[in-house]
Amino acid sequence: MINGLIKEFRIFFRDRTVLTIVVFTIFIGITVISRSVSVIPASDISYAYYFKYFRQHVMFMIFPAVLVNIMTAAFSVTSEKQSSMLSKLLPNGESIMVRSKALFCMILSAIMSFSYILVVIFAAGHDIFPDYRFLIFITASFLFLFSGLSSFTVYFAFSRFGGSCNYEPDVKTMLIYMLAVTLIVTAFYFFLLVSFKKYYDYLTGFRIDYPNIEFILFLISVFIFMVIARYLLNSAENKLSEGLI
């Protein structure tokens, strides 16, 4: 699996278009942070204001993850055009190819998104996060989102890009994919915002009772998400090995 991941990173970053987009995304991220930090007033800082800042600027961290997923579908999976047969000749080739691609996509999404949070902490201070429990909560939430999103990307790419179009998706297929990703991310964005707000209020003392219901809902959704992710990866694997021994 480690060698599979190394291969994924090499394939991904040796594409100049991808490299340009990644550098550009980092540049946008730094610009957003540097510009947004100046909007935090020096005085009269309230926790409500911090959450507003969090919602309006820090949640921007989803953007790099979405971009990584789109680039994985558009460039990384497309690079398998020649080599999809290779996965069918290697022992457990389909499984390793699907899983290493999903894992790579998740790791890169996490690296790009969490580095954004780190820069926010560095630039704006950690006051916008009530305490480290909140940081852990959003990190865990996004990890689940990224793993689900990566699984969906890999499933979609191997299911729809293979066959007649031979891993070279047309504009329509890519638009359908991007629309699906936008819907998933937007739905989760609002769902997570509600969970974050409740937990934020509890941590800052605006709410006395622990948000049990929200946590149970969150855990259930994570469980369902994980089951779906696993199903998607297995389907992608089966799709890749169709017509084989």
Binding site: I2, N3, G4, I6, K7, R10, I11, R14, D15, S79, Q82, S83, M85, L86, L89, L90, P91, N92, G93, I96
Partner: peptide
Amino acid sequence: PFRNILYGNLTLKENSRFLLSHY
């Protein structure tokens, strides 16, 4: 096979290391 199935963006050494790790 008739057509190339090795990764075009990787070197011979990198392709070989990848294959050997699978085997």
